[in-house]
Write a protein that binds this DNA or RNA. Structure first.
Lengths: 201, 201
DNA sequence: GTCTATATAAGGATAGAC
DNA sequence: GTCTATCCTTATATAGAC
């Protein structure tokens, strides 16, 4: 029994450290991007050595994949927690707002991959692809409901709406507005939502 | 006199090769992005050796900067050639359409820098910054005219409109639509324009 | 000015001691 | 399981011959 408790404690500590690693990786991905995030940096930030890091994640690709899976799961969870009273369009808007706030708070956008390298890497990560597909199906259903209710432009193909929607979560204008405009985070979120659904006109 | 002609010929050949290098770099930046574009690849594609490549451009950053300057100049030139009859909004729409077609044809988006690394690099390139600023001023004037004429949402700050506009030229949804939707290039351009100015609603 | 050959540096990944 | 020390590959950049 004592042995089992001891193992359990170890496992708990292991799990805690794993979360710390994922947190650090997420922060660094958000600030520096995939290519400039080094395993040395992550290990240093967490306060462990590189070989220890590799005991948790067998490669950099694996680590990044897990961080993104956690993010997608957060989005799915946020979708599931929404009050039943919201319309499909309100759900889409609410999730985008959530994603923008996560990002402005130092987190990651989903669809972080404007780079073909990262995109290909993620495509080979079957667990990641499965999660993204699950989220994609839920969002596709919302888009169809919103279109049927006249809340989204029915002349636009589903794919166009969905990919444009994803693209807004990783829109570089957020970074530029933060750098070069006087808007605070609240105003940035509000502007992005308005531009997304109502356009520039 | 003969010597001067000879030098002139050499210079011409040098200039031609320089254009070939920039063409190759542009194609590779568009397809692989900054980090995966190697100087070896560029030299190989042009058919010269790496040291020769470094006779033309003193660094990878320099080469990429020149390629992007050429691109921005193309945009400025396209703006200048527009018929005088176009309204400010039509000019903005026309330039975005041009940028999207350039990109779909294997070229580059301006504002290629969703990566902080590339963005910082370009910020240090004063010649590039100067060109971008020139284009930015022209577009800002167009945005203000369009707003005054009621052709753009006056409730949106200029910065929001401008950065969102730039972001549409490098929108990752273009890549995803090409990969995963049935739309041809014409339909993609039309959809992107509609989404940009009228939103998803 | 062009090449072959090489210096140099960064970073992903691991061997082996404890 | 954790560390120190190291390997190995890749890619930028250059030295030096012709």
């Amino acid at each position: 029994m004592g042995i089992f408790n001891k193992l359990s404690f170890k496992d708990q500590a292991f799990k805690l450290r794993e979360d710390a690693i994922l947190d650090a990786a997420t922060r660094m991905l958000a600030s520096k991007g995939f290519d400039l995030m080094t395993m040395d940096d992550v290990a240093l930030e967490v306060g462990i050595s590189k070989p220890s890091l590799y005991k948790h994640f067998k490669s950099k690709e694996d680590l990044v994949g897990e961080a993104l899976i956690r993010l997608i799961d957060g989005a799915i969870e946020h979708l599931g927690q929404m009050p039943a009273t919201l319309t499909p369009l309100q759900r889409l808007s609410d999730l985008l707002e959530w994603a923008l706030r996560v990002r402005l708070g130092g987190g990651l956008p989903f669809l972080p991959s404007t780079s073909a390298h990262v995109r290909d890497m993620l495509t080979r990560n079957l667990r990641y692809v499965a999660r993204v597909l699950k989220l994609h199906q839920q969002l596709k259903a919302l888009v169809r409901q919103a279109k049927a209710a006249g809340q989204l432009d029915a002349a636009l193909p589903d794919d166009v709406i969905l990919f444009s929607y994803y693209a807004r979560t990783c829109d570089p204008s957020v970074d530029y507005l933060r750098l070069y405009s006087q808007l605070d985070d609240e105003a940035i979120v509000a502007s992005m939502l308005r531009v997304c659904f109502d356009g520039l006109r």
